[in-house]
Design a protein around this nucleic acid. Sequence first.
DNA 1: CTGAAAGCGCTAACAC
DNA 2: GTGTTAGCGCTTTCAG
Lengths: 342, 342
Amino acid sequence: MPTIYDVAKRAGVSAMTVSRVINGKKDVKPETREKVLKAIEELGYVPNSLARSFVLQKTKTIGLVITDITNPFFTTLARGVEDTAMKNQFSVIFCNTDEDPEKEVLYLELLARKRVDGVILASASGKRTPLKSILLRNIPVVLIDREVDGLGDLDIVKGDSIYGAYLLTKHLIDLGHKRIGIIVGSKNISTAEDRVEGYKKALIESGITIDEELIRFAKYSREDGYRVTKELLNLENPPTAIFGGNNFIAVGAMMAIRDCGLRVPEDIALVSFDDIESLSQVYPFFTVVTQPAYSMGVIAAELLIRRIEDKDRVRERRRVILQPELIIRESAGEKLKEEVVG
Amino acid sequence: MPTIYDVAKRAGVSAMTVSRVINGKKDVKPETREKVLKAIEELGYVPNSLARSFVLQKTKTIGLVITDITNPFFTTLARGVEDTAMKNQFSVIFCNTDEDPEKEVLYLELLARKRVDGVILASASGKRTPLKSILLRNIPVVLIDREVDGLGDLDIVKGDSIYGAYLLTKHLIDLGHKRIGIIVGSKNISTAEDRVEGYKKALIESGITIDEELIRFAKYSREDGYRVTKELLNLENPPTAIFGGNNFIAVGAMMAIRDCGLRVPEDIALVSFDDIESLSQVYPFFTVVTQPAYSMGVIAAELLIRRIEDKDRVRERRRVILQPELIIRESAGEKLKEEVVG
DNA sequence: CTGAAAGCGCTAACAC
DNA sequence: GTGTTAGCGCTTTCAG
């Protein structure tokens, strides 16, 4: 592969001049520039940004660490990050942790080695397990979706889970439910705790006694949604409504309920935190609280890039809390069941 | 940030010895290794893989160029790629082209500059627009999902679109349909052409005359699915069934049909190429032909990594054609409409 | 088993 | 406007 020196030789100039042309510096005589461009063309020269990154100490790359790109919420968020990164000439390396803190550490280590310019992190490690600051020594981090404690003052972009959960629970209560089961992610993940908090707040406000038996911390997955819903349904005094802590849990819950021969919403109400666009467009069934996932990704990427490019300026921590929205459809039984599709 | 020399100094050895320890070479005396490890620990040293890549001329990174990570088919495929890459210590850079050939060229250029070790490409450029071979000079490429002409003998992993489309069309014909509309992606994208080919094959085999008016090349998007379906419905002699060329087109078609006050499958049948898992789990409605997207990603990544690591060995082109599967549900009207959910 | 020297391709900082 | 020098952090020879 031709290097900058090959181009220089062919154009009869120095490597430095070629470098200037490549990087669009203006102080190059037009005819010299032409000669260089011609040489580049003829040689099929492609600049080696590895070398460039190496000397400049910046890679124009950010790492995005999420739990599962397969979850529509994260897919959309990732798209927001990617679009914004691209717009600013950054590339993004994707990492799926599958809610596994060990995988997360591995990925963070990898990203540190690769000297990415920044990291956007939806941590699986939870609030209680501070990340090895070692890894993130000097690289800017923006937290997304989930808080992490013990990491100093990091920027964060997230939805208001407490309020969202409150809205959803309140809606259920307004429909007459008193025994509401809730299934969320692992105990020390902030969204899980926040959603339970919002749930409790709504219950307390309505004077309904909290039954800890109905509050389940599991994993944000279809499998756990399925499994735990069955547990809930098998209780002596089962809930009349279930609050799926995220979209995957709700999908799992739906399957469990169906497998038990029950119907939604006739036999049991089901609501979900986070929507699934492809589903709701075809089949607007789930009553949900939805978060602006794409914007979350865009904002996080913007904050991060600003941090990367300003390094010196802004010192204070920035927190962006996006408001969720309640979308009432059918799964909580608020309207009579009717044909939606077909 | 500490370098290998800082570690060397602190451990009282040479940089070379540190390098050997880091890379797990065996010819280092255990006690020396200990000293080095201790120094690394104390300094919080993180190897700079940029420098390493630079001298080794390999980045342990692959580029994945797809059209839209937001499409569940590509999401799943991407997950297959990422899992496999990770397993082999490779990272992956994601690129969304949005079916825009110019964006594709930009991304490929970017990846070439970054000196990725290989590229997995679902091209938006279509069969007729050979990619600038300049960009891909020496870097291995595995095509995925779609063929590209004029690029020499590239490995490819794809589904059998001809057969899949044949199955789907045949199914519609068996149900009595004779006027079947089909909406696929852009004209020179191989999957679009193949799906039309399979469609025609089924019609011809059944002695049904092909009406070119019913064959529409558009974009693989919800928007075009919606728009073109409306066109089809407004025909003087509209189709009695619509074949959505991919999942997004089918979703758009569904919305268009609903907006026209029609029902699926009572008024019109609708089938789709590619499933949407989150949808079908909750609402198993669409009759589809589905492809093993995850496996596609895994196989493509494996082929690519083998290419990267063997460079010399295998010379012949490898083509992996995965078989699609017909899943009959309700949207084509094969069973009486009944409550599926709730 | 360990070290010294050279170089990967590029750019910053200075000369001219 | 353009060229020279030096060095980014690592690994590959090749010595010892």
